[in-house]
Amino acid sequence: MKKLHFVFFGVVGLLLSCQSKDQTEEVQFEETIEMPDDGVRMIPISTLSGDFEVFTKRVGDNPTKKVLLLHGGPGMTHEQYGNFDQYFPEEDIEFIWYDQLGSAHSDQPEDSTLWTIDRFVDEVEQVRTALGLNKDNFYLLGQSWGGMLGMEYAFKHQDNLKGLIICNMMSSLDEYEKYAKEVLGPQMPPKVFAELMEIEKNMDFENPRYMELLGEHHYPQHVLRMPSNEWPEEINRMMSQVNPDVYVYMQGYSEFGITPGASLKGWDVKDQLKNITVPTLVVGATHDTMDPEHMEWMSTEVANGRFLLCPNGSHLSQYDDPEHFFPGVIQFIKDVDSGSFGK
């Protein structure tokens, strides 16, 4: 079978085998029926290509603190936030796991016209409405691609938000590529980085050396700072369910930027950040695939921003630096809820 690389905006790079349509449907069905019914709700989504359903699961119940989680990818799953149930419930914060259209527990139509930022923003708005989220209770948290989607949602619908949390995502993909190639890449042994750049230049992403080199010299340093055989089960499960049709169409294959021809190439909203007036937390990590200085700058560009640095973390800092990630995120939610944020 043909093999593809998936890098989750520089988050998770693994070598995955593409499944046939029948295999994918079988996995989706088995995963769905094994999930507990408590809190699960399939939300109807209307699009120009027809009507579909997306998976949500509510954990907790709080009238003023409800956090909708936007996973990365595109085409990953809510398992990215699998450990949130170890932290949010004890603080009485309700949260909603959610698989975007095209992701494992939601419908997976084979229609590339659906994979646009505007269409995903409209989907989030339909999910918000269906769940009864509003400016008095609605916090939106997105990581990586989910952070991009969160920004885009705020540009259009921030009147519905109580708070926005952007995790591990820069506001310019060109600057992300520049950081990856000029800062992170040179931290590798010179021969290793040169070989990786040659593979990228030749678009030879099926070359097994690509993943071999990244697995040794990049992922344990900047993706998830633990040995790959110790990665959490929910992250491995998420990676086994990636939808390549969505991921490759929008992001491409590269670990050091967006592959030419992918639909997200050139995305840049730096000049629009000033239009976000809702209380906003920007989360970065010292060892992130994204530039923490850029993300700190983002927190000063929005009208009511705060920056949280996870000093021991990388791109999935909820797993490799939970000691800083969760207290910082929880405090932001509490400050906004109490009206003390920014005072």
Results as ranks from 00 to 15, higher is better:
K2W: 03
F6N: 01
V11I: 05
Q19P: 07
S20N: 13
S20G: 14
M35N: 11
G39P: 03
L48F: 12
E53K: 12
K57N: 11
K65N: 05
G82H: 07
G82I: 10
N83I: 11
D92Y: 10
I93R: 03
W97Q: 08
D99S: 02
S112A: 13
R119M: 14
V121K: 13
D136R: 13
G146L: 01
G147P: 11
G147A: 06
M148D: 05
L149V: 05
Q158C: 14
I165P: 02
I166S: 01
M170K: 02
S171W: 11
S172V: 02
E175Y: 07
E177A: 11
E177F: 00
E177K: 08
Y179Q: 02
M188Q: 03
M188W: 06
P189Y: 01
P190R: 01
F193C: 06
Q221R: 09
V223I: 03
M226Q: 06
I235T: 02
P244Q: 12
V246M: 13
Y247S: 10
V248S: 05
M250T: 02
E255N: 10
G261I: 14
S263R: 13
K265M: 12
K265G: 01
V269T: 15
L273Q: 14
K274A: 15
V282Y: 00
V282K: 09
H287W: 09
V302G: 08
L308K: 02
N312E: 13
H315S: 03
L316H: 00
E323V: 10
F326M: 09
G328Y: 01
V329F: 13
D337V: 08
